[in-house]
């Protein structure tokens, strides 16, 4: 009776769970989009959520690098943005730090999200048509560093301040 019950239970579990890839996650790097490390990007222009324009070559003419952080205005995003504000903005005054809002559908909504979060000192790109998201293969928590040669120095999920620091120290 016990063995029969156990076997029935195992069959139920396998049938319910046999088709989700998270059960067997892959470790190999998968085919990735544009904007990967050591690639160069083309100059681009987009808009801030204030309605002002953002042109990459203008920013790189005034800084040693531009750091893009892709935000969804989530709890974790707020934590990352606080780290950038408190640990990097002042120490790396030669670097331009910009938030990329790739989820808001309008610039006005992006601005209200920014004000609600309190990160009003940052410029925020309202990526309403997801062009920057596509150009840099950005996703939630992505941090992308581009230097004055338009070379991508870093493009990964921001979960380690030491890595970003190491990249910026080499500028």
């Amino acid at each position: 009776m016990f063995i029969k019950s156990l076997l029935i239970n195992i069959v139920i579990v396998v049938m319910l769970t046999g088709c989700q890839e998270d059960l067997l996650p892959e470790s190999e790097s998968q085919e990735s989009g544009p904007g990967q490390v050591n690639e160069t990007v083309d100059d681009f222009s987009t808009q801030l959520n204030t309605g002002d324009g953002f042109v990459l070559n203008q920013r790189l003419s005034q800084a040693d690098a531009v750091v893009f952080y892709f935000t969804m205005w989530c709890t974790a995003c707020a934590g990352h943005t606080s780290i950038i504000k408190n640990d990097f903005e002042t120490e790396y005054a030669n670097v331009d730090f910009v938030l990329v809002d790739y989820v808001s559908s309008t610039t006005a909504y992006s601005r209200s999200q920014q004000q609600n979060e309190g990160f009003t000192s940052f410029d925020v790109i309202a990526d309403t048509d997801n062009r920057l998201e596509d150009a840099l293969s950005g996703t939630m928590g992505s941090i992308v560093v581009i230097d004055t040669n338009y070379k991508v120095l870093m493009n990964e999920t921001f979960n380690n301040s030491a890595k970003l620091k190491a990249v910026l120290d080499q500028l």
Binding site: P25, E26, S27, E28, S29, Q30, E31, S32, G33, V37, S137, G138, T139, M140, G141, S142, N155, E156, T157
Partner: peptide
């Protein structure tokens, strides 16, 4: 291991 996020391939 994490190799994708929101459907986007990322640095693992």
């Amino acid at each position: 291991p994490i190799s994708r996020q929101s459907g986007q391939a990322i640095t693992p």
